[in-house]
């Protein structure tokens, strides 16, 4: 799998670190109860299909960015 880093261009997946679902919204500080934070931290949509996720270009520019990828096919979409 090759990932298009928005800063360095397309590189091999081995240069990157996966950072999880990028569509999750972190609750505001002090907001909600234990369940709010449990759901934020522990639960995942884990969809079979379109997924927007964080990656870090660890062995490159070390920037974090968002990537669209299809989890059913590993087809890579837009990076931003």
């Amino acid at each position: 799998m090759r990932i298009p880093c928005p800063h360095c261009g397309e590189r091999d997946v081995s240069e990157f670190r996966y950072g999880g679902d990028a569509t999750k919204q972190r609750p505001k500080h002090g907001e909600g109860n234990l369940k709010t934070w449990h759901d934020y931290y522990f639960l995942f949509d884990n969809p079979k299909g379109a997924h927007t996720e964080y990656w870090q270009h660890v062995l490159g520019c070390r920037q974090w960015f968002k990537l669209k990828r299809n989890t059913a096919t590993n087809e890579i979409g837009e990076a931003s």
Partner: peptide, 18 residues
Amino acid sequence: GHSSHVAKMAGLRLPIES
């Protein structure tokens, strides 16, 4: 392997990544 996918049909969200 597909737990999230099937559980979602019942409206469940799980502490699982595939």
